[in-house]
Design a protein around this nucleic acid. Sequence first.
DNA 1: GTCTATAGGCCGATAGAC
DNA 2: GTCTATCGGCCTATAGAC
Lengths: 197, 197
Amino acid sequence: MKSKGKRAQQRLKTRAAILDATESIMREEGYAAVSSRRIEEKAGLKSQLVHYHFGNMNKVFLALYRRSEELFFSRMLKVLASADPLKKLWDLSIATEESTLVLEFTAIATHRKEFRDELVRSADRARSLENAILAKAFGNRKSYNLKVNPNVFSFILQSVSRAVIMERGVGITKGHSEILEFIESILKNWKLESDDD
Amino acid sequence: MKSKGKRAQQRLKTRAAILDATESIMREEGYAAVSSRRIEEKAGLKSQLVHYHFGNMNKVFLALYRRSEELFFSRMLKVLASADPLKKLWDLSIATEESTLVLEFTAIATHRKEFRDELVRSADRARSLENAILAKAFGNRKSYNLKVNPNVFSFILQSVSRAVIMERGVGITKGHSEILEFIESILKNWKLESDDD
DNA sequence: GTCTATAGGCCGATAGAC
DNA sequence: GTCTATCGGCCTATAGAC
């Protein structure tokens, strides 16, 4: 039993090392730079192990995506449970490190249809969680007498954070402080109004 | 003189065919799928011609980028000259066909530093034109007594259109009609308010 | 300016020894 | 499970004939 456990443990360790290397390469050079040989280099193991453990490269991306997704959803649940969910949702969206991988996966899905279904399924799940967060935030106001639809408001938040992160990725930061201040002032005023209820 | 002109014409024709093929592949499969061999296949000419005319693949991307940029700026100038520049700017931003290439070039710039400078320079130029368009639109109102800074407003418009196009790219369209209606209602009301001045 | 030929590299993936 | 060895494929780029 113990030796079995050790084998399983080593198996998980190797798989994790492969996924870590993949994630690292994706962050630094993009998904197109990932290959079994580059993983070999990065993780210090033979490229053939990548095929042994995952079958092919597409399954490596898929496995990494699912691992990242779990992490992302656990963070979303924390956001939902927090006292100020909308602000926390924004903080999560605007964090560069958290979102660069999402952009890479989106790029993969745009050009590989095997990947698309996975991402669409996940996007639906994320949208559900966002709705729950919005319901909680808007619920504090007791009524929905707002100028903007909650879903529209959420879409705008996500759009702006993605755009900021994409521009950061190519070294553009001009005008970012203005837009970030604007969004944050809205979120702040909102909070105050909610407290008034 | 005439034979010289013919040669120059053929030269331009071949170069254009290479760029057309490159653009086509980028739209359908993304920049990572572009190679001199794929261009050979698509344009019906030998892959070595790609190297003869452009030196290396990076310069092919650069040449295509500059060609697209010219087209884009000529469209922006038309927007600026129009009676309803803000709405026309939005129409241009939200057109999928016009913006998918931009997203691909952004992806290239994110991971190839040779490309970055070019894109940043171009982004500055685009921002200047956007500012002119905004100045014209806001100028109609005689004063700047607005809730949102013009640059912030413009950033939000561009962010939302990009996000919509990215989601379309992976087959997600849920919630798009709501957000598009929201944006367009703002632009419409705005126009009416401007006319009131 | 366009062709053939070819060098040299990185890639995914598999077979088989241990 | 991890290794060595290896195949076939596609890639960039260059040299040289025409």
